[in-house]
Design a binder for these strands. Structure first.
Lengths: 154, 154
DNA sequence: CAACTTAGTTCCTTTTTCAGACTGACGCCT
DNA sequence: AGGCGTCAGTCTGAAAAAGGAACTAAGTTG
């Protein structure tokens, strides 16, 4: 398996992994959802090398997850804003945060708490079936080969 | 930021990323959820180098996501089975698959279709609020500093 | 006994990442 | 006008990780 063709694999997970499947990208996205937008802000809060940050931001822009928007003309300066495609990554990020809360916590409790503005309560994200609304469990799901893959290779 | 201390960061996303935040690990987990259990099976379906596969499996066992279970005594052979902690990664994997379906698809349609055994229908995973059951959107969530972090650093 | 299977390990090359200095365009102060 | 600071990067050489392929080990099959 080659990393540069991963996004063409007949597997939606592989395609997603091709875009956001590395440590820095996921941490950069965390910052995006915490409303960080500028190069220096990402760099100082993540302590990522400037080189890698530059690379990763370019990649996220290339894939349409971030938009590079000028916020100053005089010295040309840009900030990075989540597109709708980027905002749609929210369930992934929240699922990861939730798993970390549940399984990687320490005695001090959660680092962050999430409040749902609609209902005003602190919540956990729950994944449900779009059809019946029940909570999803791996064992309750059966996988079928879809049209995007000729052969059933798993 | 150092990778070997990432799991101690006061951030649940960083802790999760420390465990599953690389390409191979995510692809290995995909195979696990497709009921792949054995070294050779992972290796041949992923085309990962044996060295890396060995490393990643050890790491997943170390973090309690997989269990290494003997399935043959005579030549000692082991298979790798998801623990409950591992099964709990399902929402992350499904969220990634769903995003790939929605945003990285091609003209041929989805590679895989998922059927919910409980209701018998093909479904998409949806993330909802544990308290009110509404679909979650990034903009409807307010983040508070929790007890696991002294300072509000984002 | 030779060939095959399974689950790794070892060795060497190539690619990525890291840490930090450097660039360039401007803005502000005196 | 000169010097300092800010922002958004680029460049460079060293260190770490990944890739590729052969090798080991224990047992099974023909």
């Amino acid at each position: 398996m080659k990393w540069d063709t991963l996004e063409e694999e007949p597997c939606s997970l592989a395609r997603t992994v091709a875009v956001i499947g590395d440590r820095w990208t996921l941490l950069i996205l965390r910052e995006c959802f915490l409303r960080v937008r500028r190069f220096e802000a990402f760099q100082s809060s993540l302590q990522i090398t400037r080189h890698l940050l530059s690379e990763r931001l370019k990649k996220l822009v290339r894939f349409g997850i971030l938009r590079r928007v000028p916020y100053s003309e005089a010295p040309k300066r840009y900030e990075y804003i989540l597109t709708q495609k980027g905002l749609d990554l929210y369930p992934i990020i929240m699922a990861m945060v939730h798993w970390g809360d549940a399984h990687m916590g320490d005695e001090r409790g959660r680092p962050l708490l999430h409040e749902h503005k609609s209902c005003g309560k602190l919540f956990d994200p729950v994944m449900v079936c779009s059809e019946c609304g029940e909570v999803l469990h791996a064992k309750q799901v059966h996988v079928h080969t879809g049209p995007g893959r000729k052969e059933a290779a798993g």
